[in-house]
Write a protein that binds this DNA or RNA. Structure first.
Lengths: 217, 217
DNA sequence: GAGCATATTGTAAATTTTACATAAAGGTAT
DNA sequence: ATACCTTTATGTAAAATTTACAATATGCTC
């Protein structure tokens, strides 16, 4: 089970990678992941890895691929389920773990050579994220609980690598009514303080259940 | 590896199921599938199963889920990759195979109790198909090579369980220019003979590469 | 050639999307 | 306190798309 953990830092989309400290891949960088224990549901594995690595629970996680070429790993036949996770830069604390020498956020556009087919997994995970984000506002999972419309727009622009018209974007988002105006302003900014919003998850879930999509092109 | 094989028969979406003839699940109905052999890429398994079962090659196949609860299969821990396949009712010939007592197309809305979590797998496969079909015209894979606009529309209506306005639907499809008019008419019909079209796969692939989607609501 | 069943087509209104620029707010520097 | 700087916030008109809606055309059967 491998996990492509996405995070936003400034204007960059990052992926969390770990450097192995032992075994045949010592010193090499890789995706966080683990073998599926026989006493644990596969579906629970991502949460376990996430919790260990970041201390976070209830993280947005989704399966996007399964890779099972006979020689994708050198020493034996390994099939892996690939999940992507979206975490908010707000409040995680990285925990290196015993087998990791180092752990690092790396820019999605500047990933070093990883073990096995992990570069390919990241590419596919990124494509899966982009595909999903164009239909559903899952990117809020990458933002703090309260965020500005500018942050929200930048999130789309960063991930999808597009430019959006601010006026039209705001019109569209506010009309959909899936954001809640907190009536609070961001503090300590050296210019006009922007308004803060939270994501209206209940409203969005209701709409989604009715077949609604928030398409961004 | 399990495979939800979809086919259209008349106005019904069907799933291909097999009845086991031996082992602990003798007599019970199940999804076609197989254990992943150690000398074969997981990704090739669906094609192998499809070929054995229907004689068809180059079938549309896509991964939609992985199920790995520790007790999903009674006798041992089995993780399965679930694929769905779309086959044209035109030209397959079912081959029972040695381990199958019977093989049958069953209406998606009337599936009997299957082994393990196979009913759940079918439900998820159906949801994945609907989700995909609302964005991409993958349903052509279920039609004969040449098909009428009425067939094309009915395909959407059957799978998505919706009614579409014929005039608007045709306008939209023809404008998109992803169908090729063969200038042939269907033969042996006791009424006005409808025009036949083929799917313009090259054109569609080009559009898709540019980020185009054919949304149907 | 009358009748029947399905195929085929257009138009106007409503909605959505697009393109585009200026004013407002709040802090900083003098 | 005022001018300045940076970012936030907002409206309108044109174009494109979507929606609602029904009559005619075609080809076979009797």
């Amino acid at each position: 089970m491998d996990c492509v953990i996405f995070g936003l830092e400034g204007d960059e989309l990052k992926v969390l990678l770990i450097q192995h400290d032992e075994g045949p891949v010592e010193g090499q960088w890789a995706l966080p992941g683990d073998y599926v224990r026989f006493d644990i549901d596969l579906e629970e594995m991502p949460s376990i890895v996430l919790k260990q690595l970041t201390g976070l629970e209830n993280v947005f996680v989704e399966l996007f691929d399964v890779l099972g070429k006979i020689n994708r790993v050198t020493h034996q036949r390994v099939i892996t389920a690939a999940y992507f996770a979206l975490i908010s830069t707000e409040k995680y604390e990285l925990k290196k773990g015993l087998e990791a020498r180092d752990i690092k956020w790396m820019d999605i556009h500047n990933i070093p050579k990883l073990i096995y087919d992990h570069n390919e997994i990241i590419n596919r995970g990124y494509e899966a994220l982009k595909l999903k984000l164009r239909r559903e506002p899952v990117g809020v999972e990458l933002l703090p609980r309260q965020f500005t419309l500018t942050q929200f727009q930048k999130m789309y622009e960063t991930i999808l690598d597009i430019k959006l018209d601010t006026r039209n974007f705001r019109k569209k988002i506010l009309k959909e009514d899936i954001l809640i105006d907190t009536n609070q302003k961001e503090l300590n900014v050296p210019y006009r303080a922007p308004n803060l919003y939270t994501f209206n998850a209940e409203k969005y879930d209701t709409l989604k259940a009715k077949g609604y999509f928030l398409n961004i092109y």
